[in-house]
Design a protein around this nucleic acid. Structure first.
Lengths: 340, 340
DNA sequence: AAATGTTGTTAAATCGATTTAACAGCGCAT
DNA sequence: ATGCGCTGTTAAATCGATTTAACAACATTT
């Protein structure tokens, strides 16, 4: 049994396909189509389980009911958790998700945006890499709904959802200082992205206030984890006087813990640890790692709410909004009072 | 500047759109279109960056260049890692991915399959829940390329990619026994899926050989982690004489470790631990947890290879193939020799 | 009686591509 | 001069929907 088309339905009922289309799109009253006909059509459509071909529909209407979701890396627990929540909300609202990972690669991202465009996605959710400003601006100029998250682009006037990165690291660094730590390093991925810069700045501000010297180690990101672990190992070996480290992301944090285990460093007596992001690895480490937990649900909710809002009301005149969410600071054993 | 259509190109060059289409689809020679014309068209198309509207193309050709990927839960590290790899391979071959999480919910999965169908995806990659047999068979009957993975469906003759679950747990249980453990429990999610049944059976077979009594605890899956942790806690509290536990999945394993930490159980002296799946949580736990590592890359590679193969050669006559991959058994501190 | 309005329905255009079938123009054999 | 084959190109049909503009038939107004 092959797929039925609207014409098959029309022929079978001896009505025109126009009528069928009107009825199926809830325009029966508006077009004052006979009640009895409406019922007959609906009954039959229900009976044979006819579903309009969504490709044809999209071609004609220009709407696809698909949202394009671009994360940095879907296998990163932070992004996969967000993706999952966004997926749920989207499906509940009749939208599907096409997703992809950008790897923070501008060229790849550009291609992906073009692909999404080509597929006529109705809206874009993007954790944007740097260098993609023009492409996003071009999307905006063409009236496409776009929501950025996790970071934003300074010269792009798009809606975005973020957390308060600066305060989060400021606060966590303050905590380390209050616990008596004096030589606090910040290890992070080399990146000019807004969220990473803000995290770094929060760290700097807290240290400045106390007059301690900042020690920052930036790691070049690499798919191969060994190439992340190696520089962290070198760094920790060289800087023996450190009494605390602050990891800038969950990925750095995880690799950092591997290094700490590998070198046999005792936490927190040799070295206190704090990390951005929070997940099972940190909770289950011995001792449990103090971490800044991003409000995943709230982020996903905000993102989808903002986007759906833009999708439903074609209100061009609302200027862009930015949502900044607070984080939770989960203090655990890895950063308790220094014994010095 | 709005999107150009093939007609715009045709008009601008004073050629028919048919000719443009032939040239763009590499049928210029076949249709013996003048070399000079071909060049002129190609140059212009390149210049203005014209891209055919893929919706229209799909509508006409019936191909969408989209693969539907249905995992159990994209936020599970096992599935997100696989998804990532599949995504890469798919993009490299000109395919895009629409993904979704089934939650092992038959109804939800059925809806999703229908949605994929409606979107004319070219192929399906599915980690199928039970009860979806008829739907998959219906896909197969209609000649759709389908590859199952992580598990299969006994009454469905589809290609699938799996690991050797039975041997993996058999082998790991044997290891525990050789280390001197005698009261080995198996904690897993209640599920009739083939992979879970096989794991359970491997455990049983190993115990049978040794004459030890199996102790199995099945947990009802729940989104809310507390409802997984609670029954594990109860179980471990009640069965004091256990000297080893085997967790059936990464998720159960992670929750199990939380329970173990919560109860202050010493590993491995109080209780040895082995888990299915392997990831950072297990590597970084103290002591590191012995785990069965699935060959993620090999699984993703096999899945995509089988699917692309079906997509390219429309060879109906090749009977279905099943690929069974081997796992790695990573022995760590959590299962070393019992001191009894 | 002509004009206007109302009601219920539909023919035809459209979205943007692919594909089939045909056509114009030319050389060449009959 | 007629027919055939070859070359290069294209008009028209098609995919399956939505949407515009119109039409038939009857009622009502002027």
């Amino acid at each position: 049994m092959k797929k039925l088309s609207i014409i098959d339905i029309a022929n079978h009922l001896n009505v025109s396909k126009t009528t069928i289309s009107f009825i199926l799109n809830g325009r029966a009253e508006e077009k004052r189509i006979g009640k009895e006909l409406v019922e007959r059509v609906q009954k039959f459509v229900e009976e044979v389980g006819y579903k309009p071909n969504s490709l044809a529909k999209s071609l004609r209407t220009g709407k696809s009911n698909i949202i394009g979701l671009m994360v940095e890396d879907i296998s990163n627990p932070f992004f996969s958790a967000i993706a999952r929540l966004i997926e749920d909300r989207a499906y509940k609202n009749g939208y599907k998700i096409i997703y992809c990972s950008t790897d923070n690669d501008t060229l790849k991202t550009r291609e992906l945006i073009n692909m999404f465009r080509d597929r006529h996605v109705d809206g874009y959710i993007i954790a944007p890499p740097q260098g993609i400003e023009d492409d996003i601006n071009s999307l905006l100029k063409d009236g496409m709904p776009v929501v950025l998250f996790d970071r934003h682009l300074p010269n792009v006037n798009a809606d975005f959802v973020e957390i308060d990165n600066l305060f989060s690291t400021y606060n966590a660094t303050k905590h380390l200082i209050q616990q008596g730590y004096k030589n606090i390093a910040f290890i992070t991925f080399a990146s000019g992205q807004t969220q990473m810069q803000a995290r770094l700045q929060g760290y700097h501000e807290a240290l400045n206030e106390s007059g301690y010297k900042p020690v920052v180690q930036e790691i070049i990101f690499n798919q191969n984890e060994d190439l992340i672990i190696a520089p962290i190992t070198n760094f920790l070996k060289k800087n023996k006087k450190l009494d605390a480290v602050f990891f800038g992301t969950n990925h750095v944090g995880t690799c950092g813990l591997k290094v700490i285990n590998g070198l046999g460093i005792k936490v927190p007596s040799d070295l206190a640890v704090v990390s951005f992001d929070d997940y099972d690895v940190f909770k289950l480490f011995s001792p449990p790692v103090t971490a800044i937990a991003q409000p995943i649900e709230a982020i996903a909710d905000s993102v989808i709410t903002v986007l759906l809002n833009k999708l439903n009301t074609s209100s061009q005149h609302i200027s862009s909004q930015s949502i900044i969410l607070k984080t939770d600071f989960n203090i655990r054993e890895s950063s308790k009072t220094a014994t010095s």
